[in-house]
Amino acid sequence: MIKNKMIWFFGLSGAGKTTLAKEVLQEYKERNIPTILLDGDVLRNGINKNLGFSKDDRSENVRRIAEICKLMLQANVVPIVAAITPYESDRTAVENIIGKNNILLVHVKCPINICEERDPKGLYALARKGKIKNFTGISDAYEETKMASITIDTEKNNINNSISKLLNFLSTTTLINI
């Protein structure tokens, strides 16, 4: 049975997670599907502001987001998440919290050199200078995935192609009818 599912975008900083998540949010809103965007950067400035960037804190960040999403799904609101989620074990934990049949994991793939070129927040440059510790892909790990529902390669696909690929996928796996 096709149903609405939580959509979790993960990938390196600057890969395009939030950009794609906002497009999906807009598509859902246009179809009057109750939805919310949970952006990792925003949550780190609010509910998760007491967490750092150690492996344990990153895992706790992801766990909290997943628990919020579980509540949203119970209220028939589709959560759309954009969060780096660098560890495969945390992606598995999200599936365990939400339920494997209730989640779509969208790997937003982009090589680190392209993410650094984009560097919308100047974070990579600061990390390379040692001013940001535990930065994913520079001084902390980013584990490639084996468990994505779909991979969107934002190096090889421009924004329009990426969105088109993603929306076509969603039309076959959720209630959204594109």
Rank of each mutant, 00 (worst) to 15 (best):
N113E: 15
Y142H: 00
R31P: 02
A15M: 04
L170C: 00
K29Y: 06
G130W: 11
S149M: 03
K133Y: 10
V78P: 00
K49P: 02
E60Q: 15
V62F: 06
V108P: 02
R118F: 13
A93V: 07
P79L: 01
I150E: 01
N50V: 11
L105P: 01
I97H: 07
T19D: 08
R31W: 05
E116S: 12
P120A: 08
D39T: 04
E116Y: 09
L104P: 01
A83Y: 12
L104T: 00
I138F: 03
I97K: 04
N168D: 11
I97L: 07
I98D: 09
S139G: 10
I36D: 04
P86Y: 11
N96V: 08
K70A: 10
T35L: 03
D90N: 11
G40S: 05
F169A: 01
I138S: 02
N161L: 15
D39F: 01
L126N: 13
G52R: 13
K100C: 06
I112Y: 06
E155G: 14
K156W: 12
L167A: 05
E30N: 12
L73P: 03
T19L: 09
S149W: 03
F10C: 14
I84L: 04
K29A: 09
Q26G: 04
G137I: 03
P34R: 06
D39C: 04
S59I: 10
T154N: 07
S89H: 13
N134D: 15
V94N: 05
I65W: 04
V24R: 00
G14Q: 05
Y87R: 11
V81S: 00
A148V: 01
V94P: 05
L73A: 09
G137H: 05
I163S: 12
L104Y: 01
G52P: 12
F10E: 08
P34G: 04
D119F: 03
K70C: 07
K146N: 15
M6L: 14
D119P: 13
I132A: 11
D57G: 14
P120V: 10
N61P: 07
P111N: 08
L170K: 01
I97W: 03
P79Y: 00
I65P: 08
K49W: 09
L43W: 11
C115T: 13
M147Y: 13
Y142T: 00
L51S: 09
T172Q: 14
V81L: 00
T19I: 08
N102L: 06
R64L: 10
I47D: 09
I103L: 10
E95P: 11
M147C: 14
I112S: 03
R91P: 01
L126K: 15
I176G: 04
I80P: 00
K49Y: 10
I138L: 02
A125L: 14
K165T: 15
D41Q: 05
